[in-house]
């Protein structure tokens, strides 16, 4: 686990707070630090910054630190915080906005398995219109752990195969072209 670097002396930077408010569409300034988000979060044990503290960082404009935290990748998008926030802040969506920003700015992520997984998932989806699970899994394992990573997971793959859970042929979808177009249009 990395520990997000929080400077000792902080001069608030409202422009960066406004930036993440614009990107996420959420009024982060409304957070009054009640800690409900943190108390309901099932993964705080693996986070370097718990959710309410991350919100405080964003209020102060510590955006560069926030997008380098483990937390944005450790968050499992369970939506508990979003459901419970008394100020209606969609915290799970703020996490999304931070992940998107991290990927767009090409931040070197310590928890790199997470963005690697998303890339492999979307690559398979883009190729076929649907996700071809075995292809996605192999691509993810090769990219994240190389051949040794793949070998480590081979047992689970074999067990899945024996249980008839692996479809060898990729899906064939006529709407594949439409899906490719969506990807082309949204790619920045």
């Amino acid at each position: 686990m990395t520990v997000a670097k929080i400077p000792e002396k902080i001069s608030p930077r409202p422009s960066l707070r406004r930036k993440i408010e614009d990107l996420s569409g959420q009024k982060i300034a409304a957070c009054f630090q009640c800690e409900k988000c943190t108390n309901g979060c099932p993964v705080t044990f693996a986070m370097d910054v718990v959710p309410h503290r991350l919100m405080r960082m964003l209020q102060l404009g510590l955006l560069d630190e926030a997008i380098r935290s483990d937390t944005i990748w450790v968050c499992a998008s369970c939506e508990t915080c979003t459901t419970r926030c008394p100020n209606d802040i969609d915290i799970a969506h703020v996490m999304d906005a931070l992940r998107q920003l991290s990927q767009r700015e090409g931040i070197k992520v310590v928890q790199k398995n997470a963005p690697t997984f998303h890339a492999a998932f979307l690559a398979s989806l883009r190729r076929h219109g649907r996700v071809h699970e075995p292809e996605m899994a192999v691509e993810y394992m090769l990219r994240s752990g190389g051949l040794s990573g793949l070998r480590k997971q081979a047992g689970t793959g074999m067990a899945m195969f024996k249980r008839g859970k692996i479809k060898l042929l990729p899906p064939r979808v006529r709407a594949g072209r439409q899906v490719k177009n969506i990807f082309k249009k949204v790619k920045r």
Partner: peptide, 22 residues
């Protein structure tokens, strides 16, 4: 007919519009 993938978590972690368009 001809359904395609919903994008799941990977789309919403990557791009808001992708997460809606899929």
């Amino acid at each position: 007919e001809d359904w395609t993938c919903c994008g799941a978590a990977s789309a919403h972690a990557t791009d808001d519009m992708l997460a809606l368009a899929l």
